[in-house]
Design a protein around this nucleic acid. Structure first.
Lengths: 246, 246
DNA sequence: AAAGGCGTCTTGTCCATACAGGTAGGGAGT
DNA sequence: ACTCCCTACCTGTATGGACAAGACGCCTTT
């Protein structure tokens, strides 16, 4: 973290976090911050725009920036990796591969993974636990070009993300997540230890490399009461999209 | 939209949308775009950073930017307003106030709305329909200072957001959304026309003014199969947060 | 043919400056 | 006491320049 604008952003985050800038109060002006940190106004703007994207501060032209929230957003790394996220929150993650089988992509999978129809894929069913309790069931489809590396992972691998990075240098950089609710099916109920028909939060996601190449697509089903997803947005940054179905 | 950087961003969005820059292809370099539009590189960077925040392009230092998706993110306005969103997607929105009653904030509500404990609030139960079908049930709590304006709205008001803006100049600028799944309760099932225990997508949200003053907090329950929420993220912008419950 | 090194291109970071547009508070006038 | 206006301040937009860091293709070497 040698970049000045990140240092300043971090300084502001902690200042907000420990109450020096309470929720609802105004932040120092850009000119003051620039003078205080000995940088130009442009660098300060980079820093505060990061906080704005995280939903911690709001801004209006002409008025000073306002503190909206004391808690920073999660890092992307924590969202990508179940294990990293769990440990960050003081929980103990666990993982177990229940099934793993190569196959051929159907139309939808081929489109999501940008593969030719019938291209090779690896299907994995994985149960994730949180502090020993089943928390979610992952049905992941990996693109053929990464399948070999995934297949070599141990069955009880805690962090797939971490292992793949260490073994192949693969980095997950972008993701698209679709959230809705479904009733637990037979397999869901057995694996997660809930009654059939229980509401589950379903997250269908596709992850790509920094170059935009799709790596995996997954159907994750969360046990109710175990996890909540949060999105912050504002007029400037709006990542949350609501879509109607046919 | 007189700002140059927005014009350039819009030009790029349409260029990507109509296939001039297919998914996976590289965008012109900043220098080329700057020359083509007759602006400085800083202005081009503002434009592409908007697309990056929307998840349409990815970028890596040293390499040209890559097109990730052809569809732009929804505007914040569309997310705030059910009616605006529905019409944008070619659907017909409807709304009906089922109950409306003043009351006093309990502890949680007071905290969310930044009101003193026991402060005045207005509770509204509203059913929203999409093309005539019940789509979601909204249980909204408005802060006392805006309650009078809300109470005057007609029961079948289509767009609360729109009406409040026209009558009082109130603008919603920030929001925090928590998503999880719950089983339909007795009232939910009756109002939405689903069986008791059906899975519903629950979105608990709090909206604030540009100054960060909370306006309303709401518990919205979506009928399964009617709506999907989507979040795009990347290493740089990560609005989606996953939280474990106690 | 495969491996490594080098140079060029592109994005990331940072600076200094200028002006436009909006906010908010204080003072003058009613 | 109240309203209106005006001014100082702050953020948004845009320019232009400079250097650092990473990626990629080409060319040489092995």
């Amino acid at each position: 973290m040698t970049r000045r604008h990140e240092q300043i952003a971090e300084a502001l985050r902690t200042a907000i976090g420990d109450g020096r800038h309470p929720v609802g109060s105004a932040l120092p002006s850009e000119a003051e911050l620039a003078a205080a940190h000995g940088v130009s106004r442009g660098t300060v703007r980079q820093a505060v725009s990061a906080l704005e994207a995280e939903g911690m501060v709001g801004s209006r032209q002409g008025a000073r920036r306002v503190v909206l929230s004391t808690s920073p957003s999660q890092s992307f790394a924590e969202l990508r990796s179940f294990a990293q996220w769990a440990r960050g929150g003081g929980h103990t993650p666990g993982g177990l591969v229940l099934e793993s089988a190569p196959g051929r992509a159907d139309g939808e999978e081929a489109a999501l993974l940008q593969l030719p129809p019938g291209g090779e894929v690896l299907r994995v069913l994985r149960l994730r636990t949180l502090d020993g309790e089943p928390a979610l069931l992952e049905r992941t489809v990996y693109a053929g070009w990464i399948a070999a590396a995934v297949a070599q992972l141990p069955d009880d691998c805690e962090s797939v993300t971490q292992e793949l990075y260490e073994r192949t240098g693969l980095v997950f950089a972008h993701g698209e997540h679709h959230l809705d609710a479904v009733a637990a099916g037979t397999e869901d109920s057995r694996r997660l230890g809930v009654r059939r028909g229980s509401p589950l939060l379903r997250v269908r996601r596709t992850t790509t490399t920094p170059e935009g190449r799709p790596v995996e697509t997954s159907d994750d089903r969360y046990r109710p009461g175990s996890v909540v997803f949060t999105v912050r947005n504002s007029t400037r940054t709006n990542p949350l999209v609501r879509s109607a179905l046919a």
